[in-house]
Computed example of a mutant assay.
Amino acid sequence: MDIEFASVKARSTDGIANPLFHERTMPAPLAEAGMTQEAWTALLDAGNKAVVFQWGCVTICCFTCFAHHKDIKPRAKKFVEELNSGSVAGAALPAGIVARYQMQNQNFSVQASGGLSGGGSTDTYHAILFFKEDAAPPSVQMIDRKLTGDW
């Protein structure tokens, strides 16, 4: 079973604004593996460019189907491939660490008092997952997953 070493998630604050890697603190396992703060900042800055929404006819017309998030996948995949090959300027991964991209969704539901009405929302995250090379899934583009938890 694949065990992620560390991760970072980009998200949109309102579903329309571009997703960003808001959490700027480097995960401790990456620091322990030898990643510098400068390399981490360069990785996040380059990652922010990869997850920008590309608004167009399809993404606007299919907004409720999350087309604006699905449109990010090819660019995020390319970014991770470049990160793994060492071609992202200033963002070298520590030796023995590889990155994978995954789109993650989390559904939130709210029930009004008495259960007569309610609502919900879906948050979408664009995650870069870090693995030790010998424990990484074989594909850069992993299967999307729904996050679990009691929210």
Results as ranks from 00 to 15, higher is better:
Leu20Asp: 03
Lys78Asp: 05
Asn18Arg: 01
Gly119Ala: 00
Gly34Val: 00
Ala89Ser: 14
Lys9Arg: 12
Asp134Ser: 15
Glu82Val: 02
Tyr125Trp: 09
Asp14Leu: 02
Phe21Ser: 02
Gln102Trp: 15
Phe63Met: 06
Asp144Pro: 05
Gln102Ala: 10
Ile128Leu: 04
His68Gly: 04
Ser87Ala: 13
Leu83Gly: 05
Ser87Pro: 15
Ser85Ile: 11
Trp55Asn: 01
Gln106Leu: 14
Phe5Leu: 15
Leu129Glu: 13
Val51Arg: 00
Ala92Val: 13
Asn18Thr: 03
Val140Asp: 03
Phe21Cys: 01
Ala46Ser: 06
Gly90Met: 04
Gly15Gln: 00
Ile3Lys: 11
Met35Cys: 01
Arg75Glu: 11
Ile128Trp: 13
Lys132Leu: 05
Leu93Cys: 08
Pro94Gly: 00
Ala67Thr: 02
Ala135Asn: 10
Lys49Tyr: 06
Gly96His: 03
Asp144Glu: 04
Thr36Ala: 01
Ala135Val: 08
Val98Cys: 05
His126Thr: 00
Leu20Lys: 04
Met1Asp: 09
Phe130Cys: 02
Asp150Cys: 13
Cys62Thr: 04
Val58Met: 09
Thr41His: 14
Gln54Ile: 14
Ala33Asn: 05
Asn105Leu: 12
Ser139Leu: 14
Tyr125Ser: 02
Thr122Lys: 01
Ile72Lys: 06
Phe66His: 03
Thr64Val: 08
Ala17Thr: 08
Asn84Gly: 06
Tyr101Phe: 08
Val110Trp: 12
Ile128Gly: 08
Arg145Gly: 14
Lys70Ala: 12
Pro138Cys: 15
Gln111Met: 06
Phe130Ser: 03
Ala6Leu: 07
Ala28Val: 09
Glu4Met: 06
Cys62Leu: 04
Tyr125His: 03
Thr41Asp: 15
Ile60Phe: 07
Ser109Gln: 10
Lys9Gly: 04
Arg100Tyr: 09
Thr148Met: 13
Ile97Cys: 11
Lys78Met: 06
Gly86Ile: 01
Tyr125Ala: 01
Ala42Pro: 10
